[in-house]
Design a protein around this nucleic acid. Structure first.
Length: 272
DNA sequence: ACGCAGGTTCGAT
DNA sequence: ATCGAACCTGCG
């Protein structure tokens, strides 16, 4: 077990990053310390003396990758700064957010669950899923669970998943799990190919439409071009962007812009 | 109580 | 192509 000083709190704002809606398994305790499990490793993350610290057994280098720390966000953000006053405000408001490089299957499965749900319920379902089918690992006196692999869920039936209370999404989870477990869907290939290809492949699965596919492509397959459009983004686009706006105009990291807009729109609209 | 929540599918025009 | 309704569940 080791503690790492990861980066400055300017480079990474853990609260914004974990609460902006891109992930569902990081939870803050009463001290503002975040607990989660990444790629099988339980961990906690906190701020101390202007630094972000992380404690875990994960191999060196994993956290820089997970938090996308080798990308220059100032430079990336500059690509879509100045396009509109509104977008500038979103960028300013979301400064410190980083796009997490989540596990492919976890992202696919989590965003299937996210459809037509609010964040607290999504988190509840995901937590029950991990407790039921993930591996238990002890960490600083807490029981934590890994995200179950597709091969495990591929063997489950809808009845098996009933206790998750995921509703009609249970069938979608199983379909996707079977596709990944059988090798019909190969996440590594979807990471390597063009993001439109990955989007198309995911959309061929039942229960995955454009929005869920784009979330998985952005957060789990690391294609920063993807620009998921949900009700909040739709509303923001309608109210603050020209009618002929296309996400491609934001450049190769449109997905980051999406997350700034989403976070701002949701935080200032209402929220759960 | 009853509509709605980070959508998607299916059947009817 | 486009348009609703239906789909589980739970929270306000």
């Amino acid at each position: 077990m080791k503690t790492l000083e990861l980066c400055s709190i300017e480079e990474l704002d853990i609260e914004k990053t974990f609460e902006c809606g891109q992930c569902f398994r990081w939870n803050a305790d009463e001290n503002g310390v975040y607990w989660g499990v990444v790629r099988g490793f339980p961990a906690k993350v906190w701020e101390e003396d202007g630094k972000v610290c992380v404690r875990s057994d994960a191999p060196a280098g994993m956290w820089r990758d997970y938090f996308d720390l080798d990308r220059d966000y100032e430079k990336t953000t500059a690509e879509f700064t100045g396009i509109s006053e509104y977008l500038n405000r979103c960028i300013e408001y979301g400064r410190g957010i980083r796009i997490l490089r989540q596990e492919p299957w976890e992202a696919i499965c989590s965003f299937i669950i996210s459809q037509c749900n609010n964040i607290s319920r999504i988190k509840g379902i995901v937590e029950r899923l991990c407790a039921l089918y993930g591996e238990e690992t002890a960490f600083e006196g807490r029981k934590m669970y890994t995200f179950p692999g597709a091969e495990v869920l591929a063997c489950a039936t809808e009845e098996d998943l009933a206790s998750l209370r995921s509703g009609y999404r249970a069938a979608y989870i199983i379909t996707a799990a079977k596709s990944v477990a059988s090798g019909e869907t190969k996440p590594e290939e979807l990471i390597a190919c063009h993001w439109r290809e990955a989007e198309k492949a995911l959309m061929s699965l039942k229960g995955i439409g454009k929005k869920v596919a784009d979330c998985a492509v952005l957060f789990g397959l690391y294609h920063m071009e993807a620009f998921p459009v949900d009700v909040w983004i739709k509303k923001a686009l309608k109210e603050h962007f020209p009618t002929d706006f296309v996400p491609e105009s934001l450049g190769p990291c449109a997905g980051l812009a999406q997350q700034y807009i989403f976070y701002y729109a949701r935080s200032t609209g209402n929220a759960d």
